[in-house]
Design a protein around this nucleic acid. Structure first.
Lengths: 104, 104
DNA sequence: GACTCGTATAACCTATCGGTTATATAATTT
DNA sequence: AAATTATATAACCGATAGGTTATACGAGTC
């Protein structure tokens, strides 16, 4: 599985998008995050692992807590791809419009 | 599953991203697409169905052919979300930088 | 040193995914 | 109308995802 596959797969889960959203507010320990969801602590822990593995979040060990925050690297990866795809799609849309115009 | 979940899930598969890429060049019938992959015709047909269901592609029936092309609607959906997320992340990054600066 | 706390991992279950082959269906061609 | 072509669907299978409960483990606390 390529980095990109994993990143998209990670973003496909609503719980993980919600975690990213909350972390965009401020870094938080795993416990605070998991208490915010109606699923078990291990379940959230697993989601955090997935996000870690695709570098969308980073962890800082602070005593027995794990402080999670967004990771610049992962964010940049996604942003780069999105930009590239935007360009491609822009081209495609232009072609599409041209096509539509020739067929009124 | 929300529209967004499905869209990301659809994009998580490399075959489907490749299909979108090829369609960004030009609209094509299903057969031409499926011949370009080293998997069975039904497998590609299923990928096309997934892309159809999340409105990333559209089909035009032309005799016994199905001409596939990118769908503006699906593209816009993704673009909108990406823009929104970009903004959020921009904010988060700013906060992150501020945090980093106060802790040299 | 025993206890508790915060978090991760293990083992397990069910549902879904992505592939296969076989088959159906609709449009052409002969 | 029979055969062929383009494509989709059905039935099946192994792998993976995401949840659960039970358990391990390292860091503070008594």
């Amino acid at each position: 599985m390529s980095r990109l596959d994993s990143a998209f797969a990670a973003l496909a889960d609503p719980t993980r998008r919600e975690i990213l959203h909350r972390l965009s507010g401020q870094p938080q320990p795993a416990g605070a995050l998991s208490r915010g969801f109606r699923m078990s602590q291990p379940a959230v822990s697993r989601h955090l692992r997935v996000l870690r593995e695709v570098s969308l979040v980073e962890v800082e060990e602070k005593g027995r807590q794990r402080i999670y925050r967004l990771s610049k690297r992962g964010i940049d990866d996604v942003a780069d791809y999105v930009e590239e795809v935007s360009k491609t799609w822009q081209t495609a849309l232009t072609a599409f419009k041209r096509y539509a115009e020739t067929r009124p």
